[in-house]
Amino acid sequence: MYPEKFQYFAPSDMASLEELLDKYKDDSKILAGGQSIIPLLKMRFTSIPNIIDISNISGLSFIKHNNNLEIGPMTRTAEVAASNTISVNCPLLFDAAGKVADPQVRNMGTIGGDICEADPRNDMPAVMLALNAEFEITNSSGKRTLNSSEFFKDAYTTALDSNDILTKISIKNTGYHGKYFKYTTLASDFAVFAVAINMKLNSDGTVKDIGIALTNVSSTAVKAEEAETYLIGKKIDDKTSEEAFNKLSNIIELDDDYNGTKEDKEKILKNIFVKGLKEVYGDSK
């Protein structure tokens, strides 16, 4: 399968990238690893007249930890999944990165691409929401910072303008316990749905801070804000975790599809959610 024809650019510095984006605007798209966009182009679900490959721009691939954890958007998912810095400071991200697709896709795919493509089945959007991550956005007029909670708008749609570039991912909530509970069928590595949980406890065993977000239960990744608020200050057990699940009803929209009926999927999701909360709580103690 071939994509429709396009012009290809591979700028070697940020200034040329900004220039190209300003010139082509909505008729262009940034290519990072290409693991989401190339299949869409090949199947002709979309066509983009100008593809701008950013892999030749240096300084976009890094993993640093000072007070915050900082990750460059061109960092390959496999590098995130193998990073000791991330494993120590951000177990949720470490766990989730290792569960993205398969080794070949992780070798090519990038964390920034996963976020900016915002496929509802992509894993990183929910992980970023659970981590309360912040994104540094750059364009020709300057830089600004966006919180992940205001970033994901709809399927394949983010708060990025056509000339914006994600240049840094910052995570303040490090030193938490966390895991990514991903439910897949054998035939595909995309999540049927998944739950990202990031948690920190008080010394008395109650929840001090918690981030919960879900993949593929709606047209975009969603943050379970009501459930988070409910759980703060509480201990997690069967009762509180089931009650937290009930708080999701406003944000999940499951339908019958080839993965199962709505009822079956709800049952499985509840099971994963409740077990996941208890597991991360157990790890945190």
């Binding site: 290809y8 290519l31 190339i38 299949p39 090949k42 593809i51 490959d53 896709v105 070798n107 090519m108």
Partner: peptide, 10 residues
């Protein structure tokens, strides 16, 4: 890598 999902240009 999966060469069906990589542009030769990449």
């Amino acid at each position: 890598v999966k060469s069906c999902t990589v542009l030769a240009m990449q």
